[in-house]
Amino acid sequence: MHRFRQVDVFSSAPLLGNPVAVVHDADDVSDADMAAFARWTNLSETTFLLRPTEPGADYRLRIWTPGGELPFAGHPTLGSAHAWLEAGGVPAGEDLVQECGAGLVRIRRTDRLAFAAPPLMRSGPVSEADLARIAGALRIDVAEIAGSAWIDNGPGWVGIQLGDATAVIGLQPDFAAFGDLKIGVLGIYPPGASDAEIEVRAFCPGYGMPEDPVTGSLNAGLAQWLAGSRLPASYVASQGTALGRRGRVHVETAEDGTIWVGGDTATTVDGSVLLPGADG
């Protein structure tokens, strides 16, 4: 048996954020069993905490969707850090340092946990051919796209800006047309219309879930693209409205230029899990 927690991320109220399943002390769990458990939970991500292998790391994290493993993802990073600390983990320094497929990720503890946005693996303009594919998948006209950029920090995100938040909430994508696309969409709220500056949606059917409720990696990429230009240097993003959630992602640009992506975290399930082939 392994200790297990399910943590709700990016919401201060129960059951309104994005849950992540976290398995503790998972060094003895095989890749096949990690994949099988991720399919069984059917959450957007399931994670496994292991002993670190890189100097300076407090723990190693492996992140799985129902469709496969990711090098990095944001809400699993925050939820797993929450679970590790709650289980008695003590970081070597002031910040936590997570080892994952994308390298070392810093996580700070202030009013809430926040991770430092990792470097983009792909950035820059989106081709006309890709924009046509994206517009078709979103069931919109290319002319409705107000801005676009590759913002891939591991999962493969491309960022799309629409005219406003209402346009984002009203999207009804054609998931059969996505292929390998992972599309993040944002729209700005009019002043005073929300407690957040923007509404965000994340569409990623290739990972086994059509839409992710609240997405740290996407919001990190969007901030690296737009914070300080089309968006304030620090702001709050709303995500999950169209799915009946109330996610809030807190983006802060530090004086040294580091973008911190944070959110509230709370354990909703605490127990143990029996995995095939692991004695626990």
Rank of each mutant, 00 (worst) to 15 (best):
S234P: 02
E199N: 14
A242R: 14
K182H: 10
S127K: 05
E69I: 04
D256H: 11
R109T: 12
W150Q: 13
A129H: 15
E69N: 06
P52N: 01
A223V: 02
G89S: 09
T46W: 00
R106G: 10
D270P: 01
E128M: 10
D58K: 05
E94Y: 12
R245W: 11
A266P: 01
G271C: 07
L113G: 01
V22S: 07
G184T: 09
P119Y: 06
D141L: 07
A167D: 11
V23W: 00
D25S: 13
V200L: 14
L226S: 03
R5E: 15
S234K: 02
R106D: 03
I198W: 11
V269S: 01
G187S: 06
S194L: 10
I134Y: 00
L222D: 07
N42R: 10
V9C: 13
I259C: 10
G262A: 12
E211T: 09
S234N: 06
I107S: 06
I134V: 15
T46F: 00
P52L: 02
G206L: 13
V273A: 09
R230D: 06
A36S: 14
F115R: 05
A143P: 05
D28L: 14
P76N: 01
S30D: 07
A193Q: 03
L231Y: 02
I107H: 06
A102C: 09
A196T: 02
E255W: 07
G79I: 02
